[in-house]
Amino acid sequence: MTARQTDMWQGSVDRRESRCHGTHYVFVDVLNIVSCFAVVCLHTSLGVFSLQHTFLWAFQELMQAMFIFAVPIFFMVSGMNLLDYRKKYSTKVFFKKRFVRVGRALILGSIACYLLFGLLPGLFYGAQSIADGFGPVDFCKRFLTNSIIDIYWFLYSIIYLYLLTPLLSKIVHDRRLLEYAIALTLFCSILIPAAKAIGINEKYFSPLLSWPLFASSALLYFLLGYYLENYGLPLHWNAPAWAATFLGSVTLMFLGGLCWNGFFQNSMGVEYQNYLVGISSPLCVISAVSLFMLCKALEPSLQRGSDRMKSIIRKVSSVSLGVYMFHLLLVNLTLGGPFERILTFGQYHPFIKAIAVYLLTGIAVYAGKWCISKVKRALLSK
């Protein structure tokens, strides 16, 4: 074994020992915060789906390219944290802990949004259809088909990954077997859609390669998170190199998206083409991996930060799920009168709107969690 190989092996051992001893990774909190804000940015720039030959449309396309990593990073962080759950607790405890948390969030969030949309349809874009069929049967149908608030697709997908986790946890400690699973999933979920996107007829793939399990890009990112944390990549780059890779992938997505949608031509297409700036794009994989590795490379610097700084980062990170669940209520809010000017401003300044929505939702979620904790303490004290 060479000196370099010894250092790599020792580094991997040190990381695993740190995890076993309960070291909290600050870079994971940073990833949660950045990804949560990125989700908000994606939803304040949805005007990109209405093709226009304007600077505003191009800026929204840039926001999509810049922040498309959001949900892939969430999947990667989940895979990193959960695929070795057997070291901490049994499968029964794993299911209890994860399904209670995510299932409760999905059900309560769906109920809250359904009631708001059904009872106050005039306040939210697109809510009238729910108000027209408002009732328990309609709720059940919409809940089962993710037709209440469509961004909850992430929660449905993560439940699917939780169901697979007991099986996946058996292979992750065999590096070669894990690499095989990643390669197979990369081929089916990323490369085959890429072939379709450039015009190759899918009939050449579907008979042999239409495998639902491995055709999930969510599964790819889930596996990648564990792999990158525990085995890393043969590229021993520092933070600036990973930052440059991230910016390069964003630039290619942005320029490619402009070209694909005919922005540099006299007339643009009829329908927005979002394959290149989407989670199944090879460039998105590069973007998510490089951002993950960038934040991981910054971990030593983050650990040297003050306890107060790390505490603040952790508190901000703790509201990420709540912000994800409810930020779209503010994004889709429609108010007349004196508030109309504010909403119009947000339409023409999607990045500023994203900042405002993130901050307001985060404050509301934090206040809600604080109130709930106070009520629980009061009840326990009695």
Score class of each variant (00 low, 15 high):
residue 124 F to Y: 12
residue 123 L to K: 04
residue 131 A to G: 10
residue 117 F to Q: 00
residue 136 P to V: 10
residue 127 A to N: 01
residue 123 L to M: 12
residue 118 G to P: 01
residue 123 L to T: 03
residue 124 F to H: 01
residue 145 T to S: 11
residue 144 L to F: 13
residue 141 K to S: 14
residue 137 V to A: 14
residue 118 G to R: 01
residue 145 T to I: 07
residue 130 I to P: 02
residue 137 V to Q: 11
residue 129 S to I: 10
residue 135 G to L: 12
residue 129 S to V: 13
residue 126 G to Q: 13
residue 135 G to E: 08
residue 119 L to Q: 09
residue 133 G to A: 10
residue 139 F to T: 07
residue 129 S to D: 15
residue 124 F to E: 02
residue 122 G to K: 02
residue 120 L to Q: 07
residue 132 D to R: 14
residue 124 F to T: 02
residue 134 F to Q: 09
residue 128 Q to T: 09
residue 117 F to V: 00
residue 120 L to W: 11
residue 133 G to P: 05
residue 117 F to E: 00
residue 118 G to Q: 02
residue 130 I to Y: 08
residue 140 C to E: 08
residue 122 G to N: 06
residue 116 L to K: 01
residue 131 A to E: 05
residue 130 I to Q: 09
residue 119 L to W: 12
residue 135 G to R: 10
residue 138 D to M: 09
residue 120 L to T: 11
residue 119 L to Y: 08
residue 132 D to C: 13
residue 119 L to P: 01
residue 136 P to C: 14
residue 145 T to V: 13
residue 132 D to Q: 14
residue 123 L to V: 01
residue 122 G to D: 07
residue 142 R to T: 05
residue 128 Q to P: 04
residue 127 A to V: 05
residue 140 C to R: 10
residue 136 P to G: 09
residue 123 L to R: 06
residue 141 K to A: 12
residue 121 P to H: 01
residue 132 D to P: 06
residue 131 A to L: 09
residue 132 D to N: 15
residue 125 Y to R: 13
residue 125 Y to S: 12
residue 142 R to W: 08
residue 125 Y to T: 10
residue 124 F to I: 00
residue 135 G to M: 10
residue 116 L to A: 04
residue 133 G to S: 15
residue 119 L to M: 11
residue 136 P to A: 07
residue 144 L to I: 10
residue 126 G to H: 08
residue 127 A to F: 04
residue 135 G to P: 09
residue 130 I to N: 05
residue 133 G to V: 11
residue 133 G to Q: 11
residue 142 R to G: 05
residue 130 I to W: 05
residue 116 L to S: 02
residue 129 S to A: 15
residue 131 A to Q: 06
residue 128 Q to E: 14
residue 128 Q to N: 12
residue 119 L to N: 02
